[in-house]
């Protein structure tokens, strides 16, 4: 079965005065309708840049996008700009991180939502506004027929994100990209928004890409997870598989540097040393090697000299990893897990 969305060897390069910034460098993944893919990474890992490329949002003057992006049998990188524009917001929609700055301060919420409907449907303004009210109602805004004429600053943060979702879903897109949809929100509001996204996904049977730095959000939402580092996928597979048997030290670092609310209070926070790499001058070999604490377990100078391929992991199941370590599952079980979640070790 061919995938609904299939990204192959996607590269997004930004030429600058100082050299080429390789924001995304050879990214491939697949996504089916009704499924959710979580893309995890820190700032500068290329996760947002890649999603913007799927939507065709990069300006030709500043970015070079290459590779293949197949959506429902069409390569989005081959079609004309006008054709891409007609799909944007209709087949593929996007929800952004900060709903306050992502909405125009001078136009009413209703105007901005209706605009998304008007541009792809040949209807009257009145009909578009009616549809906007329906969508506001659907995403749980109270008194939608009154709030439709409010300006974004009159909405609370959670309501603005609901309005953004209404705007994104008004044309029943088959692919929804949510770029850090809850990062700017409080936890209880985040829970509301995540619930809403899940309900709507079921209702519209859309494919959802959720981009976040929060593994917790991914754990709750995603079927598949793709961990990005320095513009490349370093681990990719089924969500549960990745979270229970991670095989790449960067993923271990992400898991062990974040505390949680239920685990043992004596669990330790093990930070990833150093800083994220520069995309202008990425480190040689494995991009993570300057921050990796397991290099001594790889024979020779392999980590420093050779970029590992994205290959099937040691454990069974669909699980790809980009690492030279030969026995990551053992290292994880004996060295990492006891540190970060001693209570899970005892259960076994």
């Amino acid at each position: 079965m061919s995938s609904f969305l299939s990204v192959r060897d996607l590269k997004v390069h930004f030429p600058t005065v100082d050299g080429v910034v390789m924001a995304t460098d050879g990214l491939s993944f697949e996504l089916q309708r009704g499924k959710t893919l979580g893309i995890v990474g820190e700032s500068g890992s290329g996760k947002s840049v890649s999603s913007s490329a799927i939507l065709g949002l990069h300006r030709k003057s500043s970015a070079i996008v290459s590779g293949e992006i197949w959506l429902d049998g069409v390569d989005l990188l081959q079609i004309s700009d006008e054709e891409m524009r007609r799909r944007r917001g209709k087949d593929v929609a996007m929800i952004f991180q900060d709903p306050l700055s992502a909405m125009h301060p001078y136009y009413t919420v209703g105007n901005q939502i209706a605009e998304a409907y008007l541009v792809h449907n040949n209807v009257s303004k009145k009909a578009a506004k009616k549809r906007a009210i329906e969508m506001l109602d659907r995403v749980g805004i109270p008194q939608p027929d009154r709030r439709v004429d409010d300006y974004p600053h009159q909405f609370s943060g959670g309501m603005r994100q609901r309005a953004m979702i209404a705007m994104g879903l008004i044309n029943n897109p088959s692919l929804l990209i949510a770029d850090e949809p809850t990062t700017a929100l409080d936890v209880t509001v985040q829970a509301q928004i995540l619930d809403l996204l899940q309900d709507l996904q079921k209702e519209f049977d859309s494919a959802v890409m959720i981009i976040t730095h929060d593994l917790g959000v991914v754990a709750e939402m995603a079927d598949d997870v793709l961990v990005m580092y320095a513009g490349r996928a370093v681990e990719y597979g089924k969500c549960k598989e990745i979270l229970t048997h991670p095989e790449m030290p960067y993923t271990w670092g992400l898991l062990s540097s974040v505390p949680d609310v239920t685990g043992d209070t004596s669990a330790k926070l093990i930070p990833i040393p150093g800083n994220p790499p520069s995309l202008l001058n990425p480190p040689s070999g494995c991009a993570f090697h300057p921050r990796c604490t397991h290099m001594d377990k790889v024979p020779g100078d392999l980590c420093r000299t050779e970029m590992p391929e994205l290959v099937p992991g040691v454990s069974a199941g669909e699980h790809l990893k980009r690492c030279h370590l030969a026995n990551p599952d053992e290292i994880y079980a004996t060295e990492i897990l006891p540190e970060i979640a001693p209570e899970l070790v005892e259960e076994k």
């Binding site: 949002l57 007609r86 799909r87 944007r88 917001g89 952004f96 992502a102 125009h104 605009e115 953004m164």
Partner: peptide
């Protein structure tokens, strides 16, 4: 950001 949103709508 809001201009990016406008573009993402397909305007």
């Amino acid at each position: 950001d809001y201009v990016r949103t406008a573009r993402a709508k397909g305007l």
